[in-house]
């Protein structure tokens, strides 16, 4: 069965951070259209700091913990609690697991999704990161239950995340700053949906590259 070792998987969070930092201006620009234009700044600051502090040779559990601590302790805003809870709950779920296989990964991302929904109370269709997150997690589960391999399930998750992200274009925002715009919020991507897609896609790419 395909798997990676938890130890040494800390580097995956550095991979994710690198793509987030690369997309700083892009994320802010999207947020600027219907939000306050700081999503890239907030994300790059949090992920960048975590990448500097975590041990790439350490466990993914620890790296998720560092990321969560930075987000919750230093970033604030909405991203602090939303992604902070996501990664805290992923870390809790992963715990001392030594080998991350598809089942462990499925459990971890489901925990992360529940963490963010617990604090943010967003539903699919509200035009948030949840519109990426829910279908991506569901697609991963579905692939596994159809007997697909870890890497095939990751690929399915990635595609679902992208479709979820793109679905936000046609939505009217129900939560966050953009909600005030009502109909005026239709026609653009949601920034959090884009960053969530980056995170999940980079998870998929980075794990796939390491699958033995």
């Amino acid at each position: 069965m395909q798997s990676i070792s938890n130890t040494g998987a800390g580097v995956i969070i550095q991979d994710i951070a690198a793509v987030i930092v690369e997309n700083k201006a892009h994320l802010s620009e999207i947020d600027g259209k219907i939000g306050d234009g700081d999503h890239g700044v907030n994300m790059a600051k949090g992920f960048g700091r975590a990448a500097d502090r975590l041990d790439p040779l350490g466990t993914l559990t620890d790296a998720l913990g560092v990321l969560s601590d930075v987000l919750m302790g230093e970033i604030g805003g909405s991203m602090g609690p939303l992604y902070g809870m996501t990664f805290a709950d992923m870390a809790d779920d992963l715990g001392t697991t030594e080998t991350i296989d598809a089942v462990a990964f499925a459990s971890m991302i489901r925990a992360g999704l529940e963490g963010v929904q617990d604090i943010g109370a967003a539903k699919v269709g509200d035009k948030t990161m949840i519109d990426t997150f829910v279908p991506a997690v569901d697609a991963f589960d579905a692939a596994i239950s159809q007997g697909k391999s870890f890497s095939e399930a990751l690929a399915a998750m990635k595609i679902a995340a992208e479709i979820g992200r793109d679905s936000t274009v046609d939505l009217v925002a129900k939560l966050g700053r953009a909600a005030r715009l009502g109909e005026r919020s239709r026609g653009t991507l949601d920034a959090g949906a884009v960053s969530c897609c980056i995170i999940l896609s980079t998870f998929a790419d980075s794990i796939t590259a390491r699958l033995s």
Partner: peptide, 12 residues
Amino acid sequence: VGELFSSPTAKS
């Protein structure tokens, strides 16, 4: 105290 136009952290 939060960042510009952004909520303070839970820690703060």
